[in-house]
Simulated assay, not measured.
Amino acid sequence: MRVLRWTAAKARSPIHETFVEVIVLGLGALLTFKKLTSFSLTQYGTRVLAPLGVPRSVVETGVIVLAYVCLYAVLAKLLLVALEKLKIGPLPKGAFGRLAQCCITVRDDDEKELEVLTARGGNTLRLAERRKDLADVHIVDLIGRLAEHLCATIPKCEEDDLFISVYAAEPFTVAGQLPMTLRLSGHHPRRDGGEVVSHVIDVGAERFAGYECVKAINSGARKAVALSDCKKYFRSNTDRHRRIQHYLGMPLMGCDRIIGFLNIEFSNHLFFVSDNELREYMTKNILGYKYLLEHHLLRAEFNVKLLEAAANKTEG
């Protein structure tokens, strides 16, 4: 498959595609003209080049070379059509414009919070409530940006081919403490929420034992789960689960403990051919979003504790 992706990268370069299109169109026009007339490329070339001292054998050789070029163009065109139908293409390099925009949004909100905090008469409790609400908004926004990024960097991938969910670990436990509960923080596409099977996942419950996120947490490995083949993927009786082709799960870490989990399901089409290819894509394109999600979850925990501290101070 790597050979096919390399071939697709070369075949779909703008210069090569333009060359193939021009040759194929020219060949079509030549064959049509030849069918309607008695035109002969060899005879025409000989008539034009003979006065210049070019022997007929050279003209015939040139025509043979041109014939091979036309044959190559036709085969290349067939290959391009096949690659298009099979949805095989190069995995482009990740573009982090969407991630940068998320970081800018967070920075702007931090600046506003700093202004509120430093202003005369700044209300600590109100600030804590605002920070808590903003953390949830940022997580939802980041999930949407991640979906846009996946569609932009995976050939032929569309929004309907993705389902992304982020769970936060509750309660905020000490390092390595189990069991824990995963509570849904956000998902994409959002629609009406009907696509979400489990809003709350009890890591210690038997009914969730087959979930990849639960298996990853209970294993203690703390590594990403990459499944290019989802034949054994845990499925509920939903249309979304019946269409899943690949799965990528990433534990979200903070303070040397799991603070959440990121799930990405790819449906409808085969975008990856091996677990290693899926992991390679993850490393180049998703890690930045994972780190920012971890920041938001830690921020959410901090906000809860800040809110509690502010409430206690007010009561005191």
Rank of each mutant, 00 (worst) to 15 (best):
L146C: 09
K223H: 03
E206C: 09
P171A: 04
A128P: 01
E129P: 07
K223M: 06
A128M: 07
A152T: 07
P155Q: 04
H199D: 12
E206M: 02
C151G: 10
C151Q: 15
T181A: 03
G186I: 00
E111T: 11
E212K: 06
D229K: 05
S228N: 14
D108I: 07
D161W: 04
T238P: 03
R126S: 12
L178F: 09
A119K: 14
C230W: 08
S219E: 05
K132H: 14
L248Y: 00
D161Y: 06
E113S: 14
V197M: 08
N218R: 15
P179N: 08
P171M: 03
R120S: 11
Y211H: 12
L178M: 15
I154H: 01
D110C: 13
E115D: 13
G210Y: 04
H241M: 03
T181K: 14
I164M: 09
G122V: 10
N218C: 01
Y211M: 12
Y247M: 06
L182A: 02
D109F: 11
M250K: 09
L178G: 10
D108C: 07
E159I: 04
V225P: 03
A205V: 02
G186H: 02
Q177A: 13
D161M: 03
E195V: 05
I201Q: 01
H188D: 10
A224Y: 03
Y211F: 14
A175C: 09
R222S: 03
G122Y: 05
T124R: 15
V137M: 08
P171S: 01
A119Y: 00
D160K: 12
K156R: 15
S236L: 06
R235C: 07
F234I: 05
F163I: 07
I201K: 00
E129M: 13
S198N: 14
D136Y: 08
V140T: 12
T153R: 04
A221E: 15
V140G: 04
H246G: 00
E113R: 13
E170Y: 10
K215E: 08
E195S: 13
G210R: 15
H246Y: 04
D160H: 11
A169P: 01
G204A: 09
H188I: 05
R191M: 05
D133F: 02
K112I: 01
M250Y: 10
M180K: 14
G176H: 07
F172L: 14
E115G: 11
R131S: 12
G186R: 00
R191K: 13
T173I: 05
E212Y: 09
G122C: 03
Q245I: 00
Q245Y: 08
V197A: 01
R222G: 03
T238C: 00
G176N: 11
A205L: 07
M180A: 10
L146Q: 01
A226E: 07
V166D: 09
V200Y: 06
L182P: 02
L227Q: 11
G204F: 08
D192L: 01
